[in-house]
């Protein structure tokens, strides 16, 4: 009985054409490893942040390609799996300090965005479910803020670039827009600037010295101060 329950949890997957039975609870990365593969490239944080394990898969008897981060996607029955080690993508070289946040900058550094045919293939490929086409389009018309907002959750996995028939690298365009936005357009955090100035002006030196002393002489008192400290919310 127990054996059967065990068996039910297995699914059939095809790794680069070869059939394997793997537990259904595994994600794609773990399924590969369960089957005996070892990742050298195409793997990173295993937590869905770094974008290194972006992959494509397909189901048996379905023509559509699906896209996911291999560390995030649970295996399902009849999945055809593979690994995509690395996307050779073009990246413009620039010095952010020398750029002006003019809308045309995106088109100047990545002029190939002018080739976008609005096919939406990039959006369909994005494992982060971003509206990639929309941000490429916003880039063409020079709307840095819109590009920055729409691409905010991009993890640079490369799938959009791999699929784009116009050989555009959307994520590098998005990154440039976010950098420009962050440096030149987003409102400055004035309180942070003020605090940095205060630190440079040694406003807190005495207080810090006192704490250092306490750390050596009366740790319990330091703990008490820490627990009872005033916390500003918002």
């Amino acid at each position: 009985m127990e054996e059967e329950a065990e068996k039910e949890k297995m699914v059939k997957v095809y790794i680069m054409g070869r059939e394997f039975e793997v537990p259904a609870t595994l994600n794609i990365v773990k399924a590969f490893e369960y089957a005996g593969y070892r990742f050298v490239r195409g793997i990173g944080c295993r937590g869905g942040y770094c974008g290194a394990c972006a992959t494509v898969y397909r189901f048996k008897d379905d023509y559509r390609l699906n896209f996911a981060l291999a560390c995030q996607k649970a295996v399902e029955n009849n999945m055809y799996l593979t690994i995509l080690p690395f996307m050779p993508a073009e990246k413009a070289i620039y010095d952010l300090n020398n750029l002006k946040p003019r809308g045309s900058v995106l088109l100047e550094l990545y002029p190939e965005i002018a080739r976008c045919v609005a096919c939406n293939t990039c959006t369909k490929a994005c494992p982060q479910e971003l509206e990639v086409m929309d941000y490429v389009q916003a880039a063409i018309r020079g709307d840095i803020e819109e590009v920055s907002n729409l691409s905010f959750d991009c993890i640079q996995c490369g799938l959009c670039a791999m699929r784009c028939p116009a050989e555009i690298v959307p994520y590098n365009v998005g990154q440039l827009a976010r950098r420009l936005y962050g440096k030149y357009i987003a409102p400055q955090a004035m309180h942070t600037h003020k605090r940095v100035e205060e630190i440079h002006a040694c406003v807190f030196d005495e207080e810090l010295d006192n704490y250092s002393l306490l750390a050596k002489e009366d740790v319990e008192k330091l703990k008490k101060i820490y627990v009872e400290r005033e916390i500003k919310v918002g």
Binding site: L107, P111, E112, A114, R115
Partner: peptide, 26 residues
Amino acid sequence: EVRDLSMEERQEIPQIAIISNLRKFS
């Protein structure tokens, strides 16, 4: 080839011209 356009050209020429030119010639 769009990458052959100089920086000055990229700065000066509007999208409408670049996009149409690439549509026809690349």
